[in-house]
Amino acid sequence: MSTIRPNGSLYTKIENSIATIEFGHPASNSFVSELLERLTKEFEKLSSNDEVSIIVLKSEGDRAFCAGASFDELVAISNLEEGKAFFSGFANVINAMRTCGKPIIGRIQGKTVGGGVGLAAACDYTFATEAASIKLSEISIGIAPLVIAPAVERKLGKSGLTELSLAPTEWKNAYWAKEKGLFSKVYDSIAEMDKELDFHTQKLASYNPEALGKMKQILWEGTGHWGDLLLERAEASGKLALSEFTRNALSKFKK
């Protein structure tokens, strides 16, 4: 595998009715727009694949799970159209995960920031390690986690969203995230997590796929309006990204 991958990588493996999607990017598994688009299409494709009962979402390596959206792309936004398109990336992925006909199990091996927290929140069940601290850093660079907020609030409640978003430089540990409902299980090591994850998914994949699909629908009841809501939030985020305050904050951050 090439080490220079400006657009990142995305691989899917299907085995024993379990589809494992693995994404990666040299910049701490962050997402450029093209990679978000590929991930959205992958969820849509797997949703209608009769050979698949369960989807596992994981990232490359043993360090960060996901550093959120590409900082370089954020800095390059020059007009509202570009801003909306940039923030629509995570909106589209979260909506694809929400409407996907299969339960999605998240494997969170390390630190997770911004949009990565949104991805974890859009999973239906999550395995994490003690190293999986989380942070919503958006406010500190002049924007806000508007697009992912509904997914995060659905799992952590309004108080959890408040604690994360209004303390943008503060890491919350994996046990805090478990207590709030973002993580289902937390393990000491990646090896221990992977052993339990494999056992759990094999068992889950042996159950009636129709029952799993129906349960998935029930879990996401009341989110039908997210199709429009998250894109509206993307536009609002794009406006924030173009503000003078944010441009100054981003240039300081880049230096």
Rank of each mutant, 00 (worst) to 15 (best):
G227Y: 02
E235H: 11
K239H: 11
L197N: 08
A96T: 02
S237V: 01
V113N: 03
F199V: 10
D124E: 08
E170D: 14
R5M: 14
G224D: 13
A121M: 11
N16T: 03
Y207M: 09
I55L: 10
Y175E: 15
C123G: 00
G181V: 10
V93T: 00
A67H: 09
V56A: 03
S9K: 04
L229G: 07
G157C: 15
L182T: 04
L231K: 07
D194L: 10
V186E: 02
G89R: 02
R63W: 13
S189M: 08
G89W: 03
V32N: 02
A167G: 04
G89S: 11
G157I: 13
K216E: 09
A120L: 12
K102E: 04
E244L: 14
Y11T: 13
M193F: 05
E153P: 01
S70M: 03
A85M: 13
F127P: 10
A76Y: 09
S159I: 13
N208K: 11
K239G: 07
L182N: 04
F86W: 11
E130H: 03
R98H: 14
G110S: 05
L74W: 05
L36G: 06
R38Y: 03
E196R: 12
V117M: 08
I105R: 00
L229P: 00
A76N: 14
A149I: 02
P26F: 06
S140E: 07
E163D: 15
V117C: 12
Q202L: 06
I105F: 01
G224I: 08
F65D: 00
S30V: 00
N29L: 11
I148C: 08
S206W: 01
S17L: 01
N29H: 06
A144S: 13
S2C: 09
G61S: 11
K203C: 08
E153I: 08
D188A: 15
M193V: 03
K214M: 12
K252C: 09
K185H: 14
G160T: 06
N29S: 09
A69E: 10
F31N: 00
G106L: 08
K185V: 03
R63F: 15
S133N: 10
I14S: 15
G222I: 12
A144Y: 10
T129Q: 13
G181M: 13
L242F: 07
K195V: 02
G222P: 06
L166P: 00
L74H: 03
E82P: 05
E244Q: 12
R63P: 01
G110N: 02
E170F: 14
G115M: 13
E221Q: 12
D72H: 14
S78K: 15
A121I: 04
E196D: 15
T12A: 03
P103A: 05
K195Y: 11
K216W: 06
K172L: 15
R38W: 03
G110M: 02
L164F: 13
F23P: 01
L36S: 09
N79Q: 13
K254S: 15
G24T: 05
E221R: 11
G101R: 05
A174W: 00
